[in-house]
């Protein structure tokens, strides 16, 4: 069989076999519309976006880095990289997951509301996770937590029964390990 397993991610068989999660680091010209081009590519071709972050990384050159976490078969992720490379203002697409273990970090702010036992327990667990309290009232805390996405997922699950009322996450920023740029 030489056919690509599932041509379109919209296909009903897509995502059922060998789905992988990859982090793509995309260096772009920071010009109007560039984010729309990237997002439009994902929606137009039915690719997944698990998270997406974007910010300027070189002010003089006006470059931004977009970090995208996506899922799909290895073939479809290779295709996503190539499709991204076709976008004219994109300089470079690096699949950090193929590159080896990249450092991935995310920042979350978690609002927890509660009194008595729950409040004490939330504070204690926040401490255990090294979360910072950035705002407090007599009936709430806002924790700030930075870490790998899994760590944040864990913390959120723990906080849920203790009165989690709101959550804001930045999405993943990532960089390759070692001395060389990716």
């Amino acid at each position: 069989m030489n056919a690509i397993a599932a041509l379109s991610p919209y296909s009903s068989s897509a995502g059922k076999t060998n789905t992988e999660r990859h982090t793509l680091s995309v260096l772009v010209d920071n010009e109007p519309g560039v984010l729309a081009r990237v997002v439009g590519l994902f929606s137009g071709r039915g690719y997944n976006i698990e998270s997406l972050t974007v910010a300027e990384v070189a002010h003089v050159e006006r470059w931004s880095r977009i970090t995208i976490v996506t899922t799909g078969s290895p073939e479809s992720i290779e295709q996503i990289s190539h499709q991204l490379e076709r976008i004219v203002p994109i300089h470079k697409v690096t699949d950090l997951t193929l590159h080896g273990r990249a450092i991935e970090r995310e920042l979350a702010m978690i609002k927890v509301r509660g009194k008595g036992e729950n409040r004490v327990e939330a504070l204690r667990l926040g401490d255990a996770f090294k979360a910072k309290v950035v705002d407090a009232t007599t009936e709430s805390f806002i924790f700030e937590l930075t870490g790998a996405p899994q760590k944040i997922d864990d913390f959120v699950e723990i906080m849920r029964p203790l009165g989690l009322v709101e959550l804001s996450r930045t999405g993943v920023a990532a960089i390759s390990r070692g001395a060389d740029p990716s």
């Binding site: 030489n2 056919a3 690509i4 041509l7 073939e75 290779e78 295709q79 490379e85």
Partner: peptide, 26 residues
């Protein structure tokens, strides 16, 4: 039909667009 497309061949693909390669056929 893709899964019956030229089943016994090796395939060389020359293209200026990297996304065309391995898009539909390995």
């Amino acid at each position: 039909r893709l899964d019956a497309f030229s089943p016994g061949s090796k395939k060389i693909h020359i293209d200026i667009d990297p996304s065309s390669i391995n898009k539909n056929v390995l």
